[in-house]
Design a protein around this nucleic acid. Sequence first.
RNA 1: CGGGGUGUCGUAUACCGGUAGUACGUCUGCUUUGGGAGCAGAUAGACGGAGUUCAAUUCUCCGCACCCCGACCA
Length: 419
Amino acid sequence: MKQSHLFTKTRREAPRDELAKNAQLLIRAGYVHKEMAGVYSYLSLGALTLKNIEDIVRKEMNAIGGQEIRMATLHPSEPWKQTGGWDQVDVLFKIDSRTEKEYALGQSEEEIVTPIASEYAPSYKDLPLSIYQIGQKYRDELRAKSGIMRGREFGMKDMYSFHTTQEDFERFYEIVKQAYLRIYSQCGLVAKVTEASGGSFSQKISYEFMVLTDAGEDTILYCTECDYCVNVEVAGETKEGDTCSKCGNSTLQSGVASEVGNVFDLGTRYPKALGFTYKDEEGNEQYPIMGCYGLGTSRLMGVIVEALADEKGIVWPASVAPFTLHLVNAMASDEQAVMYADELYNLFTSRNTAVLYDDRDARAGEKFADSDLIGIPYRIVVGKEALAGNSLELVNRATGEVERLTKEELLQRFTSQSV
RNA sequence: CGGGGUGUCGUAUACCGGUAGUACGUCUGCUUUGGGAGCAGAUAGACGGAGUUCAAUUCUCCGCACCCCGACCA
């Protein structure tokens, strides 16, 4: 995409009332537009980035057998009343209609997915079954905060699985856990798995996936040697400096983290409340064991910004960046440079490399500042050297490292074919 | 929801109980073109309502919005 065509513009300053780093940078760079507290629209760059995150999640969920669906977000009130959620879930948005019918906005989808699964899984032969979707969630938070990290409307992947036995659920949980860890790793993050409290609807243990960041809402204790990690909410007497109870080799450290995913063992609660039974081998009606697996896609985007950004702006890992390359023509008034950069842009785009091409008639300094702010992993600069000696500057956004490469070397490196 | 704070051109800010100023942006013209460049001109603003006052953007109250701390958090 040519940057002269990109309808958003960068800003020098963040709005005074946005203190969260993720919101400041995402707004300044034109990724998001705030509608109200806790509700953001995702603009060109933001939508591309969020889609990349979603695609990583989608690929991993498909790989473990999840089937993607798209559930309604406007819910009938009946299943919510059947499960008790209508009165017990305080963050549930409830809507009155002029027809006097009541609706809910989906804050989670157990009430919707369970009847769907029930319709298509009447037999043990149909289980296990895992269904997921990626879409908007609505929660009537008393206090939205931290930019896009805790909103009233947000993006989430939610998967639900149904099993004939507890053992099968636990087998599947391990598979999901590994997939989640792969997802975070592809997003440039290191996630820790904690045991946490089960929340109001589940007495069973649940797991949270936490990424260390000052912008987080939770405090965790983690081992510096092994993968032991626990949320302080459930840590009991355990405290910082204690010897790790798992490996015994190191002491526990305390840190602030953001929850970027969770897993709940829901047992048979929802199947029971909503009448989902299947027939087992003997023809007896059984309730399936249900698990749910949340992963906040928009929060993940915010956490990536928080964790990787520097004083100049956003730094995206290549896998989630809106573009692979930022092609900057540093000599906008030079006809030769324009032709050279145009040609380079066409070469990359014709080879399906995602390039943002700063073709604007602006000074190089402004372009570099914008490029740093937007945070595309690699910047290619067309300048004097490019015209004179066929050497282009390749700047790594994360490290600042500069390489000088020929056009052919760049094409080789960032496209699947050479010239 | 409890507590605290903030509302001034599109954005960031200044001042002030008496004609609201600056920077960035935007528009026009000229110059400039490797780190947010320069000159000249233009554009555009006091969250809403009530009260105090000769006079309110400024003080008081109510409302609304937003931010922060806490609580909450499938």
